[in-house]
Deep mutational scan, measured.
Amino acid sequence: AVSDRLIGRKGVVMEAISPQNSALVKVDGETWRATSGTVLDVGEEVSVKAIEGVKLVVEKLE
């Protein structure tokens, strides 16, 4: 799938994300809905860990 190429890519949080709420991230110039197990604020850099349906699963870039 096209989205599989995004695993391992870096992105930027466009809307705050919490474990209860998905929000938008920008990866390679494209906007995607994403979820995370932690709270992520706007502007934080993230890494794509997986794809669940049409959502990216991201975590904060260390």
Rank of each mutant, 00 (worst) to 15 (best):
E30S: 06
V46F: 06
E45L: 14
E45I: 14
P19M: 10
I17W: 15
D41E: 14
L24V: 08
D41H: 15
G53F: 05
K10Q: 08
W32T: 00
Q20Y: 13
L61N: 06
S47L: 15
E44K: 04
L24Y: 10
D28W: 05
K10I: 13
G53V: 03
I7G: 01
K49D: 02
D28N: 07
T31H: 08
G37E: 14
V57N: 03
S22E: 14
S3G: 10
K26A: 09
G43W: 04
I51P: 00
G43M: 03
I7K: 04
K49E: 04
I17A: 15
N21V: 09
K26L: 14
V25R: 02
V39T: 12
I17V: 11
L40A: 03
L40P: 02
T31Y: 15
G29A: 04
T31W: 12
G11K: 00
D41C: 15
S18Q: 08
V57G: 01
E52A: 09
V2Q: 09
K10A: 06
L56V: 05
A50N: 06
V13G: 01
T35W: 10
S36W: 06
K60I: 06
S18G: 13
E45G: 06
Q20N: 13
L56A: 01
E62I: 12
P19Q: 10
K55C: 15
A23K: 03
L6C: 06
P19T: 11
A1L: 11
I51R: 05
L61T: 08
E44P: 02
G8K: 03
K55R: 13
M14I: 14
R5V: 07
S3Y: 12
E30I: 10
S47F: 15
V57E: 03
D41I: 15
V48E: 01
M14S: 04
G11Q: 02
T38C: 13
R33A: 13
R33W: 15
N21R: 12
V25F: 01
T38G: 09
V12I: 12
I51F: 06
I17L: 13
L56S: 03
V13Y: 02
L24Q: 05
D41V: 15
E30A: 07
V54D: 15
V42S: 04
S36Q: 02
G29V: 01
L40M: 06
V25L: 03
V12G: 00
I7R: 04
K10W: 10
D41G: 11
E30R: 08
L61P: 05
L6Q: 00
V12K: 06
V42G: 03
K60F: 03
N21L: 09
V27P: 01
G43I: 00
V54C: 15
L24C: 08
P19V: 09
V12A: 04
R9H: 07
S18W: 10
E59Q: 08
E30W: 08
V58M: 01
K60Q: 05
A34S: 05
Q20P: 14
S18D: 08
K26N: 09
T31K: 06
G8T: 03
G29N: 08
S22C: 15
V46E: 01
A16L: 14
A34H: 02
K55L: 15
L6D: 00
T31V: 14
A34L: 00
G53R: 02
E44F: 06
K60W: 03
I7D: 01
D41M: 15
